[in-house]
Structures are given as C-alpha cells and as structure tokens.
Design a protein around this nucleic acid. Structure first.
Lengths: 182, 182
DNA sequence: GGTCCGATATATCGAGTCGATATACGGAGT
DNA sequence: ACTCCGTATATCGACTCGATATATCGGACC
C-alpha cells in the first residue's frame, strides 16, 4: 500500500497537515503497522490534490508557522472506500532485532542479554501506552486493531522473558563466559 | 538494515546464488522478518564483491543455467560480526491487512468476515509449516526466533478467532445486513 | 533581556528499495 | 509440438527512506 492511500485514510478521519499525518504514522494508532517520512508524505499529498482526491487550504495564523491543511474530497472518499474492498497485500516486516537474534550464537552473551532486556522493556512501555488509551472513544475497528496489538506484544514479551534466559545461559556455556556483575 | 548486510548474513551460513538468497528471504526462516527483491539483491552482491566482503564463482554445469555462487570472505565475516554488535534499528511493519481492519467500520460486513477468516487461515498455515521444521538441526538463535514467531502468530490467530465474530456482528447490526448464507 | 532548545511546519535530495518485466534453458506434462 | 513451471541473472522506473535545510514560536534558564 502506498503512502498516498494511507494519507487518504488519515484524511478520511479529519483534516490534517503533512506534519500531523507524520505524527499520526509514528506516534498515533497507525504507528504499529504503518510509517512514512516527509519525503513520501509531501509528494503524496501534492499528488492527491492534483488528482482531485484532496484539497489544500493555506492557513496563516499569527503566533504559529504557516500551515497547509489538507481535506479529503468526495472523490477521495470514494477512492478510499473502493480500495478497502481490494485484497490486501502481504505484511512486510523488517526487524533488525529479530535478524540479530537469529545470529545470537555469534554474539557476546552479555550483549545478547542486554538486547533481550531492551526488547522486553520496549514491549512493556508500548503496552502501557496502549492500555492507557481511552477505549470508550474508539470505533470498533480501531479498538480491534489496538487490542490485537496488545495481544501480540504481550505474547512476544512473555516468550522472550520465559525463553530468553536459557538462550543466554546456553551462549555462556558455549563461550565459557561467566555471568557479568551488573 | 540494508540488503547488503542481510546478504552477508545469509552468506555467513554458506555459499549461495542470488536466486537462492531471494528464496531464503521469502520462504526460509528469514521470511518472517526480512524480505528483498532481485532489484536489491543483485546490486547488493555486486557491491559486496567490490568491497572485498564476498567473492563470486561462475559455475557452468551442463543441464542447468549458468550460476554465480557467492562466498563470504574473512573480511566479510568480520564486518558482519561487527554489525551484530550495533544497536538494531526499530522494527518496521507495513500491514495492509491491519490498515484495512482499522477501517472495518467502512467495510461491508461479509467482506470483513472473509478477511478475518483469510487471516486466521494464513496464520494456521504458517504455524503448521513452522512447527514442522526439524528443531534438532537448528542453532539456538534460529530456534529461538522460530518459536518467537510461533508464539506471536498463535496469539494473533487466537485473538482474531475470539474477537472477530463480535466485530462482524457489530458491523451487521450497524448496517442492518443479515447474515450471509454460505 | 538575551539566548538556547524543542516543537511546529514545509520541503528537497541522494541513496536505496520494490515490483514488474525481459531473457534463457531444461524438464514435465498433454 | 506446445505450453507451462522452476531455475537463474539482470534491469528499469516509480516509489520510499533518512537525513538535512529552513523558519518561526514558546518556554526555560541565567
């Protein structure tokens, strides 16, 4: 799915500037399954306007920088809803962390242990933030996706906490490294 | 992580052609957390050779197409192991399926139901394939990553199976669509 | 009062990546 | 004979990524 369609989806829930869409993609609920940089978002918004799927309004307010607020048009809404009917493409995950873990045998045990801990901490932080969301204001689909994320993160964190120590222990046995004092 | 490093990782486990590396990325154990097309792999392998991190051997056997087998060099192995020490970048997931599910409220209930079923089926298939792997031949890190994938997929499939029906039911109530006979 | 920092906001550039496509050969099926 | 599939290399245009440049405003700090 290209950034253009994703922007259309964001605009379907309300007007926004390119900056706000970026934040939505990296911090908001979209953050867990989509991301894009300015280098993709600004050209995408420009093209949406060219194609008549969105419109721009330049807003000059004293006390803040000039903004360009984008709005979806009826044609844009129709295009977006049509897109929802199509077969979604396969997920694409790129995880350096898992890649590194795959080669855990080639890593120093202490570093491995640290990476595992960092990962669990990261999951716990995200989980806390996600569970803090006010579930009352969410639509059905939004809540469904949020809770799916919670279920997945919880499972991953639990697995790493349960199985990580034995991976580290095996690594120490192999290299003969004593446990580091921390 | 760029494709170059990923190729180095693949080569660290044995010689391979570009074609074989592609298959590794899309079917093999790497498939769940990394992917790359020929347009990235072939240039990456060429550059690895330029930089002295890999070497090529052209193999001409009768009865099969000419192949180029790539091997990692000691310098390549050193570069790869150095890379394993660095802080891994954040995961990057792009999921059209989750994106569409987020907008479930704008979808026809029957289609939503089909998408949910397709997704669960997809997870079940992957799980069967993953659990069929001979766990005896895997290294610690490889098994760890495989089982992490199993834990995550299982959690996702279970969540969708448990929570999906009520999402569909709410959608039907909202649109007044009767249940489709299948 | 000045000054630095972070947040808001738009925009662009090169390097890298994706997906489709072209080419070519062998084997299997019909 | 013909077509299709798997193996294998390679390229192209469109798109995406990550870093960077620019600018303004509000608040913190001394």
């Amino acid at each position: 799915m290209d950034v253009r369609t994703a922007c259309l989806g964001a605009l379907s829930r309300g007007d926004a500037t390119g900056y706000e869409i970026k934040k939505l993609f990296e911090e908001g609920p979209f953050g867990h399954f989509f991301s894009a940089g300015y280098g993709s978002i600004y050209p995408a918004l420009a093209r949406l306007c060219e194609e008549g799927l969105a419109t721009v309004a330049t807003i000059e307010e004293p006390g803040r920088p000039v903004r360009k607020s984008y709005s979806i048009t009826p044609a844009g809404r129709a295009a977006f809803e049509k897109m929802l009917l199509e077969q979604p493409a396969d997920d694409r995950l790129k995880s350096e962390w898992i890649f590194v873990a795959y080669f855990a045998d080639s890593m120093p045990p202490d570093l491995l242990e640290r990476r595992l801990r960092e990962r669990v901490d990261w999951y716990r932080e995200r989980l806390e933030a996600m569970e803090g969301c006010n579930q009352e204001t969410l639509r059905d689909g939004e809540r469904f996706v949020l809770d799916l994320g919670v279920a997945v993160y919880r499972a991953a964190a639990r697995y790493i906490e349960e199985q990580g120590p034995s991976l580290v222990a095996a690594s120490r046995r192999r290299t003969g490294t004593p446990e580091a004092a921390e």
